[in-house]
Design a protein around this nucleic acid. Sequence first.
DNA 1: AAGAGGATGAACT
DNA 2: GTTCATCCTCTTG
Length: 209
Amino acid sequence: MVSDRLPQSFYLGEDVVFLAKALLGNVLVTEFNGQRSAGRIVETEAYRGPDDRACHAFNNRRTPRTEVMFGPGGHAYVYLCYGIHHLFNIVTGPEDAAHAVLIRGVEPLDNLALMLERRHLTKPAPPLTAGPGALAQALGIRTIHSGLPLFAPESPIWLEDRGLTPSPESIVAGTRVGVEPAGACALRPWRFSIKGSPWVSRAKGAPTP
DNA sequence: AAGAGGATGAACT
DNA sequence: GTTCATCCTCTTG
């Protein structure tokens, strides 16, 4: 079966919280220099530009870095955190909405060997792809990929629906990680994961079931 | 022109 | 549980 790339229309919905849930179970694929690797999305977080203090585009603040979030949905927003980690987000919503979904955890599917090599690890355990910085490194995603259209046929990064979408009752909602200073916004249950998956991040402050 | 700090992860005690 | 690596971006002078 040939899996097609998710079309741009998938990303254009106004409700970024809904889309963060809808992204669970879809497969994130990268192919650089003919080398493909992929993982199933098991953890996401929604960031809503205009009214979310935790979002880089809060209050519709435009900077060169956040400009891509103000474009139409379906583009990559990759940001360097702590000078080390490349965090992969998917821009959602219509133009000027400034919403994005952070991918926080994936279950490795294709080309484990390449992912292990990129992470300098030897066995497929959660440290490989559980956590936003970890999965970006495993899939070879870096800040230079920010702005890529995920729906375009020639893009080296895209999403596929391989029929692995979780049932609604197996989706867990929680508070987001690392957004303490955002005050009341930190209480919003905008972090979503697939219940029981070992590939969900164990970040500080995250619920541990 | 300069400095603080960040949507983290790994290696420590 | 704590510490710290490490660099880009944004704010301030």
